[in-house]
């Protein structure tokens, strides 16, 4: 799974101003639509929220990986947000979240795309340097360089 193939400029938000998890997800999903990954935002948002209700996707380290499998998704896509002010995500370690990776996959996907994206991301996120570089990137071009590293 090459992360760079499923993200583009429209779905990258650096220093995003969002007051809550809900607002953050809303803005990121708007970006996913502009990027061409999502055609039915409401259906996709419902899938993402349903997943959050089963248990937080805030995995600690200030990182959350919300995700949803939905007919509202055209093709597998990823959005990234770095929040200007960390928000509460009901995380496993109780700490607020600043880095958000939102994953969308089609409900027609049979190849477990979502797991492949999740594994690829976690293999990068486990490196502290990678997380530091995510916090330091100044442009989407720089972010893509970071995503390509490791």
């Amino acid at each position: 799974m090459e992360i760079l193939n499923i993200i583009n400029d429209e779905a990258v938000f650096l220093e995003l101003n969002a007051a809550s998890r809900e607002e953050c997800l809303q803005i990121m999903i708007d970006g996913m639509e502009k990027a061409g990954f999502v055609k039915d935002k409401a259906a996709y948002l419902a899938a993402v929220n349903e997943r959050e209700q089963k248990g937080s996707t805030g995995i600690g380290f200030g990182v959350a990986i919300p995700h949803g499998k939905s007919g509202g998704v055209v093709s597998a896509g990823l959005a990234f947000a770095r929040l200007a002010n960390p928000v509460d995500w009901n995380s496993l370690d109780g700490k607020p979240v600043q880095l958000v990776f939102l994953i969308g996959v089609s409900d027609q996907d049979a190849s477990n795309e979502h797991m492949k994206i999740l594994i690829a991301l976690s293999r990068k996120l486990i490196h502290e340097d990678f997380r530091k570089n995510l916090l330091a990137a100044n442009s989407s071009a720089e972010l893509f360089e970071v995503l390509q590293s490791i």
Binding site: G60, F61, L118, I119, S122, R123, L125, I126
Partner: peptide, 12 residues
């Protein structure tokens, strides 16, 4: 005991 560590394992 590390959630990220466990997620990197790629168990299917």
């Amino acid at each position: 005991k590390s959630i990220l560590g466990l997620m990197t394992m790629g168990f299917e």
